[in-house]
Structures are given as structure tokens and as C-alpha cells.
Design a binder for these strands. Sequence first.
DNA 1: TTGCGTTTCCAAAACGTTTTGGGTACCATT
DNA 2: AATGGTACCCAAAACGTTTTGGAAACGCAA
Lengths: 334, 334
Amino acid sequence: MPVTIRDVARAAGVSITTVSHAFNGYEDVGDETKKRVLQVAKDLNYRPSRVARSLVLQQTQSVGLLISDFNANPGSNHFLFDVLAGIHNRLAELGYDVTLLSTTTARQQLISYIDFCTERRLEGVIVMGMRMDDPYMQEVADASLVSVGIDLPILSRHCGYVMTDNVGGAKQGVKHLLSKNHRRIGFVNGHLHAVVSIDRLRGYEDALRDEGIAVDPELIVHSDFLVEGGEKATAALLERRPDVTAIFYASDLMALGGMRHLQKAGRRIPEDVAVVGYDNIDVGQWVVPALTTVGQKRYEMGTSAAEMLVGMLQRKEEPRACVLQADMVIRQSS
Amino acid sequence: MPVTIRDVARAAGVSITTVSHAFNGYEDVGDETKKRVLQVAKDLNYRPSRVARSLVLQQTQSVGLLISDFNANPGSNHFLFDVLAGIHNRLAELGYDVTLLSTTTARQQLISYIDFCTERRLEGVIVMGMRMDDPYMQEVADASLVSVGIDLPILSRHCGYVMTDNVGGAKQGVKHLLSKNHRRIGFVNGHLHAVVSIDRLRGYEDALRDEGIAVDPELIVHSDFLVEGGEKATAALLERRPDVTAIFYASDLMALGGMRHLQKAGRRIPEDVAVVGYDNIDVGQWVVPALTTVGQKRYEMGTSAAEMLVGMLQRKEEPRACVLQADMVIRQSS
DNA sequence: TTGCGTTTCCAAAACGTTTTGGGTACCATT
DNA sequence: AATGGTACCCAAAACGTTTTGGAAACGCAA
């Protein structure tokens, strides 16, 4: 049904070769014929078939986008969406198509993601939304398929990654509070067996030390990244050290819980206690006062991943770790 | 580099025909040889090339997903993301791949989306995030390409759509307030040149009439879907009719603005004034009190669109309008 | 012996491109 | 007249599958 190169050749009275050459910028086709061929092609509405092209060229110019748990990610939705947009837009600019691929459906079909990619001759894959303990991780690491992980710090022969500098991010957040002359700064961290918690703690400590302030263990409390946890942790912190003038939270959700408690306890924000969160979730800009926070450059993470992948694909670049600076968003809570 | 059907044939000592037949359930291959072929294929890690398959079969088993303004959609992000997940997961179950495609990318502005699809031999396309006045709309409507729109009420020869029942949704919201014995219910609508505003107004009026309550024009005020607009509209409404006991907003953002004003004006929610919004955005569950709202079944919209498209593709079903019921979420603000 | 079914296998064409290795005119030099 | 160069064009192979139309081998009935 669709019009092929053969139809164009016949209509223009030339060979298939000539049509192909006319389209692909070869020098050995006369101006006159070239014009005629292109005109005929346009008239017939000819579009060269990518699948035939892929077959003969042995490259599809398309990559997979592996999203873990595509349906059940209410928390990180916009995170994934923004990254997704970045990946796709940059990849499109670079001439690559992106095919979606989720672990949930792939698992249903009992086919590994590697098999999925080789069947389709995808040239590479970007992996996101996956946790370090995901069973797919092993496959990603071992794969001979070129891949880039988002927030997935695995570096192997064919596998690079892009993530955000959590140490630096936390440092920025605390430095911001220091610049507002706060000296007794509480820190509500997540559980310590998450990698980000360790990094953010480092950042908190580094910032204080840079300013010559001793780290006071009483000011540090651990929680679970969630709202209620933040609320309780804040209560405990205030009990222990009622003199804090600022609190840094390792997640926005905990910061929201904390603000709830602070307001209940009659502390004004930011006059009595300043608050800084982490993640830059949407809600932050709607609460009163609006939440100061440090977030990831989500769209940029996507574009970076896209560029890294294409670099590895086209210029045989070595896989590397791309660490992006965190993004400080200053609002009314500090 | 990748292992082909020829490699398998050679290794198993049969013709490529036999390998193909063994894989595709033909009856004319002996039990003994069939077992050997499959074993050899597994040993060699053979995966049939979809691109070669697509070429000879003249079908790619893959569809496009056209997303308008992929990068600049902060408001409706999770809406698109959830729909996207629904589309992809259902489509994967049905054996289709999905290729991303956005209107924004510079490269893709040079080439129409129809051309994009025919080049790749995509069998159909699902369109989302597009507004009725988008220049791409014309193309979608005229296309001979099979397509399904999300929230895009266009019905043509090859083009169906799925959207949410806005009349029914608004009706549900207002009925909920009526069931709480509210009788003077204000309505803060969006601008009237949006289709949804007209529908939601209809729903508001229908609900009141069903209960035998006259529609009071003084209780209806128009705004712009946004926070500040909702705030001002609420102020105006309270000025005009201080006796309202409930307000229905045509968007959550306006409801948030409204709640801000109500609290400033010293009205308790929901004791003095009950509030119901529309859209079910994430923020709604974090504000205090949590916002009652009516939303769309986002994931289900995706799966429905996927099923409709595949129905049109495989069973030659006629394009149709699929109208889903709205989703009432009752929280503390009402 | 011939003819006819089964069962199991295969050669070759086809799908729509790209690319290689020429070929034919034509003109300008020797 | 032969040679060489240039400008333009093309046939055919290749990419990795599926499918069509047999073919070979065998047994069985006439």
C-alpha cells in the first residue's frame, strides 16, 4: 500500500539506485534528474521505509527506555516524567527514536529486557526508576548492551550513569541557612541504609565544618523520608534542643510534616525556625509558607543521559559517571 | 554480529525454512528436528530480528505516542504520566511497541507527524496533551492514519477518542455537596471558551435542578483555572453572597486559592464553607484540610485508548467516543 | 509396475532499502 | 585514432526474515 522507492523510480523513469542517490546526497546524479526525482517523490508522497533502511544498514537509530514499575510510582511520578521528557527531546534531536519498555510488562511476557532489545535491534537503553536491589539490576550491570542509568550508580564496561550530587546538594541547603546567620541547625535525615542519606549527612557536616561550627549529634535525628516521620522527628528534635533556629530535612515530605508540627507548636516559619527541604516536589510551592528546597535538575538529567548514551554509541566514548549539581530553590520558608 | 536464522540453520544442519517453521508452529517439521533446532537456537542465544520480520510481514506491531509540548507541562505532568503508563502497559500486553513522538522537538517540527509515522511504518498513533486549537489538530483530524485522542473530542473516519464525562463529573461533585445538606452552593468556573467549563456548568445546573433548586446566577462566578483567580473569585463571591455554605470549583488550583482566602476571611473549612475542587492534583491531599475533588481515571484512560486503537487496528472496529465516568475523591474539605 | 498419500524437508522469491562495481557517452588530449 | 577523464546512470547483491510451491522418501493400494 505505501509507495516505495520502486514506484518513484518508475514514475521518474530512472533506476532505484538513482532515486536512492538523489535522496542521500550522492554527487553522481544530474541536476535535472535530481530535481525531477525529488519532485516525483513529493508528488507521490514517498517516505523511505525506516525498517528496510534499518535492515540493510544494520542499525535502527533507536534506543529503549526501561522504566521500572511503570504503574506504581505515585511518589516519583513527576520526577520520572521530567526526566523522560529530557531524554526523549534530546534523543530526538540527535536522531534517535525511543521505544518504551517497562519491567512489569516485560516480566509478564517472560522475556528479559536484553532479549527485548536484541529482538528489536535497539542500539542502547536508558534505565530509570529502578532501585539498587531490583532483580533487573544484575542484568543491567552484566549486559553487553550499551546503557545509561538514571540515579543508578553502576559503572561497568558498557554502562554509565547520571545522578545528582547529594553531598553538594545538602551542603548548599545548609550553607543557605548559614548565610542567613543560623548557627544551631537541626538535621532530619532519612534512614541510614539509603545511599542518599549518607551523602546528605556528609553534606550537612561539611557545610558546618567549612564555617568552623562543630557538629552537634543532638541536632541530628533520623526518620523515614515520609510526612509523619518528619512530624515526629521534629517534635523529638524540639524537645531535645528547643533552641534550634533552623531545620534541614532530607526530604520535602518530612519538611512538610515538620512544618505542620512547628506551626502547631506555635513557632513561626521562618521567623522562629527556618525550614529547608530536599527533592523539590510540586507541593512545596503551594504550602504556606512556600518551601525552600534543593532538588534535582530533572529535565537536564534526561538530556545528559541521552547525550552520554549517544556519545558511547557514536563516538565509542567510555562509560562514565555524570554527576549534576543540585538545584537550590529559595522560597519563603527560610 | 548478532546471530541470525542462518547461523541457527547451519548449526542445526537444516535449512532456514525449517528453523522458521520450527519457531512459528508449522506442522511440517519432525519432532526430533524441532527439538534440536530449538535447542541450538537457545544455545546460540538466537533472537529473530523484528526489523526483518516487519519488512516481510509488512507490519511493525508498533504505534506512536504523540505528546504535545513534552517539556512545558508543569501543571498536567502527572496526568500525562499516568495516562502514558496506562497506554504503554496495555499496549505491551497486546503485543505492540510504543515509540515516543513529540511536537516540540525542533527536528520534528520540520517533518509532519504523519510523515514521521509512515517513515517508521507505525500502525497507529495515540495523541495526548494537545489542545483543540493546536495547529497539529488539523493533521490529526484529516489523517488516514488510525488514531485515538486523549481528551481530544474529535471523531473522524480513522480517529476515535477517550475522555472524561465533565458534565457527570461536575454533577457528582455538586450532588455530594447536596447530600451534605448544602443548599446555597457557589460555583467558581473557568473561562467560558474552554469546552470543559461549559460541560461543568451544565453538570452544576443539572445537579441543582434534579434536587428542585433554582439556579441562582449570583452564585456563579467565572475565573481562569488558576490559584490567584480562584482567590479573587472567592472574595467576590463571598462579598456578593456571604451566606454560601459550600463552593464548587472547576479546578483544584482555584480551590486552593479559594481555601486560602476562606481561611484568611476566618471561615472554617468545612464547618462554615465546604469546598470541592476538580482535577485531583497531587497537592490536594497535602493541604489542610485535604481537598475533596473530582478527577479523571488517568491510568484507565490510557488503557482504554490502547484497547480502542488495537480494536481499530486488528478487528477493524469503527472509531468511537469513549467517555469515562469521573472519579470522586472525598476528603476533609467537604 | 504404477499411482497416490504422508511426512519431512528445502530452494527461491519477496519485503524496501543501500552500496558496490561497473557501464556508456561525451569531450579533450596526445 | 587511440587514450584518458568526467559526468551520469544502472544491475545486482545484500540485510534477515516469511511463505510458496514443490521434492524426496516411504508406504500402501491397485
